[in-house]
Design a protein around this nucleic acid. Sequence first.
DNA 1: GTTTATGCAAATTCTTTGCAATACT
DNA 2: AGTATTGCAAAGAATTTGCATAAAC
Lengths: 139, 139
Amino acid sequence: MSQVRKTKSVEKVLHLFELQSNAISAIELVEKLDKNMNKTTVYRILDRLENKGLLHSIMGRDGLKWYAKCKDCSSEKHTDAHPHFQCTNCGKVDCLDIEVLIPQVKQHNIKSAELFLIGECNECRMSQADILIPKQLKK
Amino acid sequence: MSQVRKTKSVEKVLHLFELQSNAISAIELVEKLDKNMNKTTVYRILDRLENKGLLHSIMGRDGLKWYAKCKDCSSEKHTDAHPHFQCTNCGKVDCLDIEVLIPQVKQHNIKSAELFLIGECNECRMSQADILIPKQLKK
DNA sequence: GTTTATGCAAATTCTTTGCAATACT
DNA sequence: AGTATTGCAAAGAATTTGCATAAAC
């Protein structure tokens, strides 16, 4: 089976995932890379890295696909079944280091589970900005 | 606060949710209503019904928003914290009647949780069609 | 009669495709 | 050399917006 070629673009993308532990959406990634990389390429790289087990993705309630690096996955097996968190204020997605049990139900054949936690992240909660400046006025 | 007006369109949409317990996506709904209702209207009705607590929605891994009727919710409180299931084969989304505990984490302020189960539904598993006719050849 | 809903067309947002050119191994 | 990857422009899919008309309260 073919490998993920270590092209400059792939290196750049992987590097960004090394820098931060948060999940990153394709759009955010395109912005971060600015005009150094075509957006099509970014989408294709994310896809490839997910298939090879280097990244995993979750769908945010915002309808965006968020990617984060996998710890112990491969193209054969995705073992990353940790829960994720999304902030209702800033939209950021976090991987959480908690064990999750996959419940089984009689009516279907469950293969995997995703636990998605929603709330306000500490940074947003701490920032006085949200109290002083109502959200509607920001930006 | 304003109410949801009982228009013909709203009645039709609500009726469809009465008929089936599965979740329905906006697109599916537009198809079911055929050309009897403008798609914009459908999107707006779903939105309104969700805000008023008559429906709740979940994001599928397919990137589509799936709606289902709430049992004990209102515009003030969404108590429906049941898990959902999506079939990897037919894409159908199901509400499951299981209690889910909302885990708390130190780093964030968790307000709600969604448990999403992924697998193959019974109908798909039972149907011999998938064995006799490889997916790629179908349709 | 005032407020809320609807239809239509057009715009937006995110993602994918086709294909020729380029970079990797 | 041969295959995988990239860039660009264009297409696609799902959803949203603006605005004039129509229906509900």
